[in-house]
Design a binder for these strands. Structure first.
Lengths: 339, 339
DNA sequence: TATTTTAATGTAAACGTTTACATAACTTAG
DNA sequence: CTAAGTTATGTAAACGTTTACATTAAAATA
């Protein structure tokens, strides 16, 4: 590996001068600058990041902590983050942890080792983060994605799950469905809980059937949506619509309806949440809520970078809520069809 | 940020002793060790990675270069890699690049900046990597995933696309389909090309219709599968089966069949490739080829780590080909049904 | 041309670790 | 109790940068 010393020697200047050329700071005589630049290219010299990090206390790297489930969700968001950071010459260090304890350890390591300048935490299952937040406070800027955390001096980006869920239930009720079941995504998932909350509130607001047996727990997989639907259709009276907390479960629900020889949407309306790319290609095309994952990622990257360039004292506590749009297709039994 | 100096001072020892405790190397008197350890915990001291990297010339970090498309594919593989590396206390630095030039620059930066100890390159579209390989040679160990590269002293992990595609075509022909169309995934994608090659060879081997108009180009999206199918069904005579190079396009094909009022599989058999999680929940359930993405990632991580622990001189050129298994469901018109 | 001012370059310390080598503190043996 | 042998600890250089400060070279002025 070639170092700044090799360059300096070959160019017959001091390392200071090479450094100045590299950072095109100060005044360097054009002739010298050219000579040094040529040699840098000649030797394919790239400054050692460890030395840089040590000296500057900045690494141009941001950490990204994510859950080891929900692959689809995750990778889209990450692409959004990455694209923005890449443009701004920053790298991403990723880590996924199983449980909360492991996670806190990881974060601690990231932050205190001088490895990163900023952190994005995507942990829908996060609950008790007291210790963590104290850690972070004033160390480096943090962006939380879909976490229920009141951390001062950080950014939190949330989806407007609650209102969209309400809206979806409202839409179903307008279509005459009064007995709407809900397949939950998991108690420990923030998005799932919010969607559920929207469902519950909408039921009472729009005077729908509020019986408890219309709610069943799933885990965001097709299989769980399938099982949940089989269970739900044994209720008496059976639901006339099913709202699954994500598209995967809705797909399982559609398959279950097929097995039960129920026509969707005639006998049973089914709607999902997420708007995965193939939702439009299902039979029937799935009514769902569109979630702009790439944009979410982009916002996260942008907000983080902005805060990284700010004095700790200037940082603010920010909460960004991304509004979501229902996408009406056939599976809800609606006449209209949107793009 | 607390440093080894703070610890040393507080424990009234030299930094050397603290270092020895940290690396539990050498002999340190138990009493001293305890005292130092206590203070390390007390101060929540984490060694600075930049200083470590500078000194040790190892960063416990591996780079991961991936394409900015194929989110699903990518994130599963990454999870596989991550899980293995996390266990072995290594971090992952990711980067995705748009074009080849940008990519080579990224790799160059990664490698020559002392940022990483190993590199995993996932670039199905990679073609001409001469310059790159020369770069890498003997610098750090590399694993290529789904790249058509003959790089000495590195590991290449490939899917057995070719044989599985052949097998799938064979299966269709056994079911009496003689006019099998193919929806290509993209000329610049290694996996897509290999699947196509398998299709072509199978056609001639099993004496099927070899007309060129049975091949159409797609781009791995549902929409392209949809369009491709509409086009294919205008052929005269029309194909009796469609082999899509991935599941997303197969889903588009199924939707197209629906629009054309064709029954699948009765009028038209449709098969895909990948076995995404919802393939089993489609109507009809999709016959496809299962690709063990997590395992692929795991293998990549394992192989890389192994090579990182080897002397450059001891490294070998390795090529791992992962065999794939067809998953027979309803969409091909087969009687049998597999798990 | 000699002197002052300004611009370019060099020197060396600092960042936070590890580690070879030097030294100090114990043990053990005589 | 001293000398020799161990074992534990300390000192300081090294890793590859940046940068404050010192120095030298060039330009401007008298």
């Amino acid at each position: 590996m070639t170092t700044i010393n090799d360059v300096a020697k070959k160019a017959k200047v001091s390392t200071a001068t090479v450094s100045r050329v590299l950072n095109n700071s100060d005044k360097v005589r054009p002739a010298t600058r050219d000579r040094v630049s040529t040699i840098i290219k000649e030797l394919n010299f790239v400054p050692n990041v460890n030395a840089l990090g040590l000296q500057r206390k900045k690494t141009k790297t941001v950490g990204l902590i994510f859950p080891d489930a929900s692959a689809h969700y995750f990778s889209e968001i990450m692409q959004g983050i990455n694209r923005h950071l890449f443009k701004n010459d920053h790298q991403i260090l990723i880590s996924s942890a199983h449980d909360e304890e492991e996670e806190i350890k990881t974060i601690n390591g990231f932050v205190n080792s001088g490895r990163i300048d900023g952190l994005i935490i995507m942990m829908p299952s996060a609950r008790d983060y007291k210790g963590l937040i104290d850690q972070l406070k004033n160390e480096i800027p943090v962006v939380f994605i879909a976490c229920e955390i009141d951390a001062p001096y950080s950014t939190t980006i949330l989806l407007d799950n609650y209102n969209s869920a309400k809206e979806m239930v409202h839409h179903l009720s307008q279509l005459g469905r009064k007995r709407i079941a809900f397949i939950h995504g998991g108690e420990h998932n923030y998005d799932a809980r919010e969607r559920h909350r929207g469902y519950i509130d909408a039921r009472s607001e729009y005077q729908l059937d509020e019986s408890e047996e219309l709610e069943v727990m799933g885990n965001f997989t097709e299989a769980s949506g399938f099982q949940a639907t089989l269970a739900l259709m044994k209720r008496n009276p059976a639901p006339t619509a099913i709202f699954a907390a994500n598209d995967a479960m809705a797909i399982g629900a559609i398959e279950a309806a097929r097995v039960l020889k129920l026509s969707v949407p005639a006998d049973l309306a089914i709607v999902g949440f997420d708007d995965i790319s193939l939702a439009a290609y299902l039979d029937p095309a799935l009514t769902t809520v569109h979630v702009p994952l790439r944009r979410l990622g982009h916002l996260a990257g942008e907000s983080l970078l902005k805060n990284m360039n700010l004095d700790p004292a200037e940082r603010t506590t920010e909460k960004i809520i991304i509004p979501l749009k229902p996408v009406i297709r056939r599976s809800c039994g609606s006449e209209q069809e949107s793009a």
